[in-house]
Design a protein around this nucleic acid. Sequence first.
DNA 1: CTGAAAGCGCTTACAG
DNA 2: CTGAAAGCGCTTACAG
Lengths: 341, 341
Amino acid sequence: MAKIDDVARLAGVSKGTVSNVFSQKRPTSPKVTERVLRISRELNYVPNHTARSLVTKKTMAIGLTVPHGNFFFSTFHNQFINGVVLEASTYGYRVLLDMIAVEEVKTPSLASYPIDGAIVLGPMLEDRRIQLLHQHQIPFVTVGQMMNQGIVDASTVNNDNEKIIHDICDYLISMGHRNMMFLNAGQQMTVSMVRSEAFIHALEKHQIGLQPHMIHYKPMVDYEESMRYGYEETYHTLSELSEQVTAIIADDDRTAFSAMHALKDLGYRVPEDISLFVICGDLSMMHQVTPSLTGMDLQPSELGVQAVRLLMHKLSVLEGEYRNHWIVDSRIIERDSCSLK
Amino acid sequence: MAKIDDVARLAGVSKGTVSNVFSQKRPTSPKVTERVLRISRELNYVPNHTARSLVTKKTMAIGLTVPHGNFFFSTFHNQFINGVVLEASTYGYRVLLDMIAVEEVKTPSLASYPIDGAIVLGPMLEDRRIQLLHQHQIPFVTVGQMMNQGIVDASTVNNDNEKIIHDICDYLISMGHRNMMFLNAGQQMTVSMVRSEAFIHALEKHQIGLQPHMIHYKPMVDYEESMRYGYEETYHTLSELSEQVTAIIADDDRTAFSAMHALKDLGYRVPEDISLFVICGDLSMMHQVTPSLTGMDLQPSELGVQAVRLLMHKLSVLEGEYRNHWIVDSRIIERDSCSLK
DNA sequence: CTGAAAGCGCTTACAG
DNA sequence: CTGAAAGCGCTTACAG
């Protein structure tokens, strides 16, 4: 590959001038610009990204780390990632995908992270990723519930999870449901704790006593098993219970699908016998199944966009004031899976 | 951040030695190793990835480019990406996600790609991404149908699309179906061309005449519209047709869901009135809906794994013989959405 | 608007 | 097993 010296020599200018033509950080005369560009084209020259990074100290990449474990994207993640990648490209940034946890610095061969900043999706308690980012002094923003873990000033973009749960409970309770089952996310997700608490508060607000069968947590397992979560919990809980659960709140669309499957096997109809509400699912897909699923629009793509904007502010790519915590709106999309008790 | 000179000075050794401790390319005495490591820990030192890359000429990252446009991942893409990221991490490689097309070199500020190789998902006719990769001399492997476009020796990982379509047609025809509708992928996808041809051949093989309503192509549009594709084509085709279509082959699970929706609105039952076969869908999700969907297991995760392995061979990270074209197996998973005519 | 020179933080022959 | 020095391919004050 041609390098800057080759272009400079053939164009009869200095390296600095060639650099300026490409970076546009200082003006160059039209004549020189055109000559340099022509030679560059002939030589198939393009500035070496790595060399540039070394001196500018910018990699023009941000890291996107998702929880470790045998993890698979949900449609929620899809749209979130879409928002991130598209918005990042607006500022000339690329996205480095890290699905497994940022590894321990166990092997000495580990080098620094070639990223200018990071977005941490679904922060967890004792999150190794956050500890390392902090230690390496890489600016980051978390998306999802952030608990205080000593890193006081963490920037975060999130939905208002308390409001979400209260809205859902108010909605279902207003329809006459008092025995609801909540298929929550995994216990290691900080979001699930906030949601459980809000769920309990919402019940109290309406003078409904909490019962053991009302809250379930997704086991932290592999893909296949997590697909069965909705089925297993629904099937076993409902078949062993004497009282009648009349509404189920499912953490995501997959959980909802598998819960529906269990309901069918148990002989229950949705929504005639049992209502089903999805917190975090793909709205289009939820619209296509039968019955179409009522749920909450969390705007995952918007979460991604706002996370990138916040990070760009922290990196001083974006000027002006900004808030360290950003809440993305959510609202109920009524469809056919919930009805009066 | 501390740099190699700081560590070298405090540890009383040369930079070269510090380098060796971290890269492990040359042995260092236990005493020195331990001292360097201790100092490094104290200073929070870690080798600068960019500086290392500049001299080794390796970024230890591969690019993953998906088709441009207003694109959203399907569950197929999810699992594929999973395979790629996990397998790449095995070799110490990270994955740079490019969702929009590798841009034209229109603005001169564009720098080289900081990747050692690339995986191109869903190659298209006149694929700009491939042209650029080729021009920048970045090794790449394509996943999905590759048509000859002057780049003769492109490495590729793929399913056997001809076999897939023949297997599906043989399966449905053996059940008595002769009037089948194929909701194919978008016309710009090379895979859809191969599948259409195979579909036509399969019909010929069984002496079934091709009719205009039998093949449809997903319009290249935004997310919302593509979700409607299955619905629209199914609804309009079936309501305007005098003869009876008895089986539908859907390109992916979303198309299948929305086709099912249309069938329900038209008063058809699956599979009693019309059978439904899904080519490329999330098997677990297809198992959870009612009726559970019969489809083809394309092993998307395995496609990702093999694509990375092939690329690692091309980058000489992996030693030994390898084939430039790799076919990943597929097989029919029988569930409840197809039945005898 | 342009050039000459230093420097970004590493690795790598070369020499011992 | 270790060190001294050159060099990876750019950008950036500094000077004009």
